[in-house]
Nucleic acid binder design. Structure first.
Length: 396
RNA sequence: GCCGCUAUGGUGCAACGGUUAGCACGUAGCCCUUUCAAGGCUAAAAUACGGGUUCGAUUCCCGUUAGCGGUACCA
């Protein structure tokens, strides 16, 4: 089988060659080892085997080279003798004379048609480019600029695939990465702005980016750094740009309330998101661990209780006293909450930190949350007191 | 196999003949502290190997090795 395939005397134009039955076609990786450059049999004046429909191949010049200018890799030159007589049109099936056009044929025709001036694509196409250049020439069209970009590899340095997790940009979106953070991260794969600053908003990237600055080395997709960019954007983005993203998350989780769209509700929403953002890593965190800020229906995390409610009886008593003290406040803001809480701790002879941590678990159900008194202000007096009393009940 | 591309800490990039080889992520430690982040400071950590060229190589040339890509009637 193999001998027939590589032999120059074989009827290379026929579909019979590769076999319509798949078992006659060895796996590509294996055939490559024994393979030589394919020349169309018609060069020897031999017609296709009778009865089989021919495919149309490109008659590559014998000898000489084909070169092109790559904006990233520079002047490239390939020997024509390394390029096989590649197939342009598949052989026809049934009644049709020819089948569908192959990739190289399609893209070149399409790009000429669309008057494409710059072909920017992955470096995996660099070896195929001379074939396309040959086609442009054969069709009398102007050859565009080519720019091949380094490939993005997985952490194991193999080509990025499903195995590496998300492979589709939309998946990063659903995971909760901000589009602009993702863009910033991606831009830095195979390119650097020059200075030391890596945090660049899209407008700045647009201004600084240049194809000539692109590196020729493949880059590894570094997920931790992507996450870092996301936290940076979550923190530094003007709050008005972040709010719609958070709103979308809350809507998705059924936590959204229309009163947060305008007026005082909007102001509260903005302040709350601003308070939460330094601790959020991914957008869905706003609806998950921050749930207690947007809904009264939340669970107290067992691990948090384990950590900060170590002595239930003592905690219960402290929380009960705190609830009373806070309920009595006539002004609900940071300092009064702070003073009242510390007074309870002092009276009970415990460290303020102990009480503070216990309260945090009681009012937001998490061990991790924004600074306590800011949290209290945002939640409001009525809610804080109620949650403290609920916690007392929960403690038995 | 053949052809081609690439090679700076674990990762992404700087340094484009002369620097104590720089920055960022990550890692470790310290500070801050009300949890956890953030932030600040510090530390460990690199020019793949071998030959040239040069007064001087991370940088230019050659070879080796390694990784990647291409080599399909896939795209």
């Amino acid at each position: 089988m193999r001998a027939r395939f590589t032999s120059h005397s074989a009827p290379l134009c026929t579909s019979k060659l590769l076999g319509s039955a798949s078992q006659t076609v060895p796996r590509f990786a294996e055939t490559a080892k024994v393979r030589r450059v394919t020349r169309c049999s018609c060069r020897d004046g031999k017609p296709s085997a009778s009865g089989v429909k021919p495919a149309v191949r490109f008659k590559v010049p014998v000898g000489g080279t084909t070169k092109f200018l790559d904006v990233v890799f520079g002047e490239r030159e390939f020997s024509n003798d390394e390029i096989e007589d590649f197939v342009l049109l598949r052989s026809g099936k049934g009644e049709e004379e020819f089948g569908q056009a192959m990739y190289h044929m399609s893209v070149v025709v399409d790009d000429i048609d669309m008057r494409i001036t710059h072909v920017i694509r992955g470096a995996d196409h660099i070896s195929n480019t001379p074939k396309q250049v040959l086609l442009y020439r054969a069709m009398g069209a102007a050859i565009p600029f080519f720019a091949h970009l380094p490939l993005i590899l997985g952490a194991d340095k193999s080509r990025l695939s499903k195995r590496h997790g998300a492979t589709d940009v939309n998946m990063y979106r659903t995971e909760g990465f901000l589009p602009e953070a993702f863009r910033n991260f991606l831009a830095l794969l195979g390119w650097a702005p020059g200075g030391d600053e890596e945090f660049l908003r899209t407008s700045q990237l647009l201004e600084k980016f240049s194809l000539q600055g692109v590196s020729r080395t493949n880059a590894v997709f570094d997920r931790p750094k992507l996450e870092w960019f996301n936290t940076q954007y979550l923190q530094k983005l003007p709050i008005d740009e972040l709010l719609p993203e958070v709103e979308a998350q809350l809507r998705r989780s059924g936590l959204w309330k229309d009163e947060w769209a305008t007026g005082a509700g909007r102001e509260w929403f903005s302040r709350t998101v601003d308070l939460l953002r330094p601790r959020v890593r991914l957008l869905p965190d706003f609806a998950s661990w921050s749930r207690a800020f947007f809904s009264d229906e939340f669970e107290r995390d067992p691990a948090a209780k384990e950590k900060f409610w170590k002595e239930p009886a003592k905690i219960k008593e402290l929380l009960r006293k705190t609830a009373d003290a806070l309920a009595a406040l006539t002004e609900w803001s940071h300092d009064p909450c702070d003073h009242a809480t510390r007074a309870v701790a002092e009276a009970a002879g415990v460290k303020a930190g102990l009480l503070i941590n216990a309260i945090r678990v009681a009012i937001v159900g998490q061990a991790v949350a924004p600074p306590l008194f800011d949290t209290m202000v945002v939640l409001g007096q009525e809610r804080v007191v109620r949650r403290l009393r609920d916690a007392v009940t929960e403690l038995g």
